[in-house]
Design a protein around this nucleic acid. Structure first.
Lengths: 204, 204
DNA sequence: CTAGACTTCAAACGATTGTTTGAAACGGGC
DNA sequence: GCCCGTTTCAAACAATCGTTTGAAGTCTAG
């Protein structure tokens, strides 16, 4: 009997890959760095995932499946009392909770933002085909709340809104958590400002 | 006498590096790909720039020196009749013109957005040390126009605004140029929506 | 025309990349 | 006990990485 690893090889790889992809990018993080951080053998990646590209997709799938489910769940919950603020909250809060799920903070959201930065056709197609329906549902909810905007105007504003949300949730900005502040309250403040700012931009 | 290349070796390398960094990232674009695209010898990069890291910095310097100058120039021009919209315009329009400067479109703005995605300490320090004063000046202008906001509230909103601008100018969004539309009018529309949206978010 | 500085070139350096291999170790069912 | 599918392992694969080298080429000043 040995270390009795708390998590399976698959999970250890996914966790280490997520952190290293966030820190160094998909090309910048090598499989040797990943397997070394996960304390598994180098060949384990190709055994369990087939290739590095498949590992990248699996890193997204593991988080986005649940994130998408929770977002649509909250959107359904508020359906009859929807406001711009509550719909934005339905989109943001699940991401906020996800980013607080692990001690490291906003690791996965940084990976997700990298996926936007990569103009990688294959990756964008994968994300759009598998999770595009979430954005579609939210776009419909916003369309109901902003009947004065024509379709083109609405899409422009949603595009800008998604940009602000992505950028902020990935912690790209310059604002750092203040010393006396917990990670949770810092990010809750950010979410509050995000909702306020974006709602104003949408209905301007 | 041979090809009489229209541009110097240095310029060809910088141009090719910019495009490949935008497309594949800093780690993802190799010096062999860069020198091959620039049609220069592989060793030319280390001869003219010393290292790949120095080449990356030079790619930023070449564009940001002029971009910063133009932004502050426009900011000074509108000093006595400043509105949220005109200050945002002073920030956005120079970037818009830059992105239309070359046939490819928003190449450099995508590279700049990658610099945010890279959490790379060295790169962030370089950008902050060399171009941080631009953001400082604009922050001061916004502070004058939004006296009702305390410092912390203002910084949150500016952080979110910069996120929206960066994301949009880098063309991360899903909105594509419509077939019958020129690149110029497409990006001018984007700038118009950006200013409208962001101004509303700032004064909400 | 030649001397000398600047630039380009093909070739190679050791290190690192993603992936593959075949054998060793493991673990539950008989 | 043994068997067999699953998993892990060290080792090696060819390919590519950033960088260095020393010779060849180019150009201008005297």
């Amino acid at each position: 009997m040995h270390d009795t690893p708390q998590f399976s090889t698959r999970q250890r790889i996914l966790g280490a890959a997520e952190e290293l992809f966030a820190e160094r990018g998909f090309a910048g993080a090598s499989l040797r760095q990943v397997t070394s951080a996960a304390k598994v053998n180098l060949a384990a990646v190709n055994y369990h995932f087939g290739s590095k590209d498949n590992l990248i997709e699996e890193v997204f799938r593991r988080r986005l499946d649940e994130l998408s489910r929770r977002r649509l769940e909250r959107l359904a919950e508020i359906a009859d009392e929807a406001t711009l603020e509550s719909v934005l909250d339905a989109f943001i809060t699940p991401a906020l909770e996800l980013s607080l799920d692990r001690k490291g903070g906003s690791v996965f959201m940084r990976v997700l933002a990298r996926a936007f930065a990569e103009h990688n056709t294959h990756l964008r197609k994968f994300l759009s085909e598998n999770y595009g329906y979430v954005l579609k549902d939210f776009a419909a909810a916003f369309a109901n709340l902003l009947p004065q905007l024509d379709k083109e105007e609405l899409y422009w504003r949603l595009d800008i809104a998604v940009g602000a949300l992505t950028y902020a949730m990935a912690d790209f900005g310059v604002i750092q958590r203040r010393p006396g502040e917990t990670e949770r309250t810092h990010r809750e403040q950010m979410a509050r400002h995000l909702i306020h700012f974006t709602a104003a931009g949408l209905r301007a």
